[in-house]
């Protein structure tokens, strides 16, 4: 009890001392100049704070809003171009964009089977473009179309080769059906396509046929491996070609002389040079009635389009359009 009392006394003593001791006042420097210094520093700090981009609306706008707007505009522009280019026909200004977006889509897929599906989809797209092509008056459009179509075919083919058998089987069957359809349609178009553009279509059709032959051959081998008998037509060494009833000789299926049109000798078709934008194809003088020109050599026939050099001439195209 006395210990507690003693502590209370000590506490009272300490409190007394605390109350008695005179605490110093703020020094003169603070009293006289302190406020001015504080106000000056506050003004400086405020300016500094305003200079920070995230506090300053102007800088905020500059640092965030402008890039964001630019990004949005870019996205909107890209979407607009994408949408506009979807219906672009070959040879038009936006066709390049369409092809670019297609390549980008292929590049962005994660699996080869998706790539193959996309390339097959693009092949279909090419076929739709082809149906609009005969009205076009430019070689450039035909050349571009042919190049892109062949690239798509090549793409699917190489992807199917790279895929494991179990994955590629279904896709190959689908691709084969697709190519049958393509070939049938091209057969029909070969009869009505203007002569100057014919070589482009023939080249595409030939590539289509080559791929088709390879797929048929592969399909047949697979069936053999599975122990299924081959169909009677295959056993005979002939393969049906679309709905046209054309036939390709068995010995020719690997080397590619598969273009079925009876109108044009195969040797001439293989001589087709790659066509530049401004160069008329060597076979440009061909007509649907090819016998008219078979007598002349490709050199002779080159540029023999009506009255002028001809490949850009509307009249010359009409001249050969029968």
């Amino acid at each position: 009890m006395s210990g507690r009392k003693s502590k209370e006394i000590k506490a009272a003593l300490a409190e007394d001392l605390l109350r008695r001791v005179e605490s110093p006042k703020a020094p003169q420097r603070l009293q006289v100049y302190g406020l001015q210094r504080i106000l000056a520093r506050a003004a400086y700090e405020t300016r500094t704070v305003e200079r920070r981009w995230f506090r300053n609306p102007a800088l905020w706008r500059r640092a965030v809003v402008l890039p964001l707007t630019a990004l949005l505009l870019l996205a909107a522009g890209t979407s607009g171009v994408y949408a506009a280019s979807m219906d672009a026909p070959p040879g038009s200004a936006l066709y390049g964009c369409k092809i670019f977006f297609e390549r980008a889509r292929v590049a962005l897929t994660v699996s080869r089977s998706s790539d193959a599906r996309l390339e097959m989809e693009f092949c279909e797209r090419r076929l739709r473009e082809l149906q609009g092509l005969p009205e076009s008056g430019e070689y450039r459009a035909w050349e571009r179309w042919s190049r892109e179509y062949r690239r798509n075919l090549e793409g699917v083919d190489s992807l199917l080769d790279a895929l494991p058998a179990e994955e590629s089987a279904g896709l190959a069957a689908r691709f084969q059906a697709q190519l049958e359809e393509h070939h049938a349609l091209m057969e029909g178009l070969l009869k009505i396509t203007p002569a100057p553009y014919l070589p482009y279509l023939q080249q595409a059709s030939r590539e289509c046929m080559e791929r088709l032959q390879r797929l048929r051959h592969r399909h047949g081998m697979e069936e053999e491996e599975r122990g299924q008998p081959r169909g009677p037509r295959e056993e005979e060494g002939t393969t049906p070609v679309g709905d046209t009833g054309s036939e390709v000789q068995d010995g020719a299926e690997e080397s590619g002389p598969c273009f079925p049109s009876p109108s044009y000798p195969q040797a001439e078709l293989e001589d087709l040079a790659p066509y530049g934008e401004d160069t008329a194809p060597s076979g440009m003088a061909w007509t649907s009635d090819a016998e008219d020109n078979w007598g002349s050599s490709p050199k002779e026939s080159n540029g023999v389009m009506g009255e002028g050099s001809g490949h850009e001439g509307k009249g010359s195209a009409n001249h050969y359009w029968k």
């Binding site: 502590k7 000590k10 506490a11 009272a12 409190e15 001392l17 605390l18």
Partner: peptide
């Protein structure tokens, strides 16, 4: 309270 008691003890 604790501070005052301790301060008193220290001063003493």
């Amino acid at each position: 309270h604790r501070a005052l008691r301790k301060l008193g003890t220290i001063l003493e």
